[in-house]
Design a protein around this nucleic acid. Structure first.
Length: 233
DNA sequence: GGCAGCCTGGTT
DNA sequence: AACCAGGCTGCC
């Protein structure tokens, strides 16, 4: 295997031959690479033995809840032309212009738009809630009503939250592990996710919950205003 | 645009 | 035994 590529939640392993394995880990999936044999484990759906010179390496895809998938592509060009053409810009690098373009014409709730992989690729339920809290925005605020200055701040916070989460190895709630098998620790910095009823870390108000876009949503009704003001710090 | 359904394991 | 979480697809 030569190279790794990623867009949003999708990962590509590009082989030396140029052929590609495109995969999505779903919510409980993981891939592990190790030298030599691997200890047996449950829920392994695919296993490769890779030969490099005299060394054998094992690559394994484990996915207890089977929400993940993988498909084979002849080349990166094929990946770009199919699966990746349906994805919006990557959330780690989203610009305020790109975000503004998505928000401008939609009356949908902000949270629903941020979860839409075709608009912005890479955000799931945890990170959307964490981003909206840090941006001081209500999850049900109509997307087109977010003023330009606030959109630019939202884009910056999106990039910052994800970069920090990556730095900490992600959020280990239950299944998630880093590629080395370690726990992530971004959950220690969660402000709202998993904290329903607990006091807001900023103002002490008990955190609220509600279904938004068929997703459990946690937010602070005091810190996250429904009508964002331009120029908020 | 909403919503059921897919699936498993942990919780109630 | 019933319910829930989560990402995404496919059907209204």
């Amino acid at each position: 295997m030569l190279e790794l590529h990623r867009k949003g939640k999708q990962l590509v392993l590009e082989m030396r031959s140029g052929s590609c394995l495109l995969l999505h880990l779903g919510m409980s999936g993981s891939i592990r690479v190790c030298v030599g044999e691997m200890e047996p484990e449950s829920h392994v759906h695919a296993l490769w033995q890779l030969q490099r010179d005299a060394v054998t390496m094992s690559l394994r895809h484990r996915d207890p809840r089977r929400f993940g998938w993988l498909e084979s592509h002849a080349s990166m060009a094929s990946v770009h032309a199919s699966a990746w053409s349906a994805l919006g810009p990557d959330a780690l690098e989203i610009s305020s212009e790109q975000l503004a373009a998505s928000l401008r014409e939609s009356r949908r709730p902000l949270k629903s738009l941020l979860l839409d992989q075709g608009r912005i690729a890479g955000l799931g339920n945890i990170y959307v809630d964490e981003i909206l809290f840090r941006a001081g925005l209500h999850p049900e605020c109509a997307s087109h009503r977010v003023p330009p200055g606030v959109v630019s701040r939202l884009a910056r916070i999106t990039r910052e939250v994800l970069a920090r989460a990556v730095e900490l190895g992600g959020s280990t709630i239950r299944d998630h592990r880093t590629v080395e098998g370690a726990w992530g620790s971004f959950q220690d910095e969660h402000r709202v996710y998993g904290r329903v009823g607990l006091p807001c870390r900023v103002c002490g108000t008990p955190l609220s919950t509600r279904q938004v876009s068929q997703r459990t949503t946690v937010f602070c009704r005091r810190c996250q205003s429904r009508t964002p003001q331009e120029g908020r710090p």
